[in-house]
């Protein structure tokens, strides 16, 4: 039998033992808290504004002449959740390689940011986008067209990366 004598309750004073002042104190604290500002946010109306360090949906950087990606496949290799699929193709332009297929399966993505960390071309970055709702599994597999985001929308993140990473 492992019950020890209840030492702590002996240390309580008489007023603490009869419990009535404790109830009064508890109610007082309840009323006090009623007039304090609320901590929660009513979400769909008030949205969270993420800092540049936030790791949201991974996107591809789109410049005026096209995407930066050269389809080296490093992001696909490092991805711990195996969410990225890259199939390379070649052209005659200055940048010889480009991804024929670039898919990110958002059902698998764990937002670790490793793809962004290893990319040698600064082509894939984590955006500030955190509202990800899909109505079917097929919608969640994002093709290249949906992943490309103009570079001007990603300036915050790119600057943060250059400064702190």
């Amino acid at each position: 039998m492992n019950i020890k004598h209840n030492i702590e309750s002996d240390r309580l004073t008489f007023w603490e033992k009869i419990y009535i002042p404790e109830i009064a104190k508890g109610l007082a604290s309840t009323f006090k808290t009623m007039f304090q500002p609320k901590f929660t946010r009513s979400y769909p109306e008030e949205k969270m504004v993420p800092s540049p360090s936030f790791r949201g949906r991974p996107v591809l950087v789109q410049e005026e002449e096209g995407g930066r990606c050269v389809a080296c496949g490093l992001c696909s290799r490092v991805c711990p959740a195996l969410a990225i699929e890259v199939q390379p193709a070649e052209t005659d332009k200055e940048k010889e390689r480009f991804p024929k297929v670039f898919e990110i399966n958002m059902l698998r993505c764990i937002f670790c940011g490793f793809c962004e960390e290893v990319c040698p071309e600064e082509a894939i970055v984590m955006s500030q986008d955190y509202e990800l709702v899909f109505t079917s599994q097929e919608d969640a597999i994002l093709p290249k067209e949906k992943l490309l985001v103009p570079i001007k929308n990603l300036q915050d993140r790119l600057e943060w990366l250059r400064q702190y990473r």
């Binding site: 492992n2 019950i3 020890k4 004598h5 209840n6 702590e8 404790e22």
Partner: peptide
């Protein structure tokens, strides 16, 4: 302070699960 001098809390915690 909400619970540390509360009798119910201490009665249920003290002396229970001795190791």
């Amino acid at each position: 302070a909400l619970v540390d001098r509360n009798r119910i809390f201490i009665d249920r915690m003290a002396g229970v699960g001795y190791l």
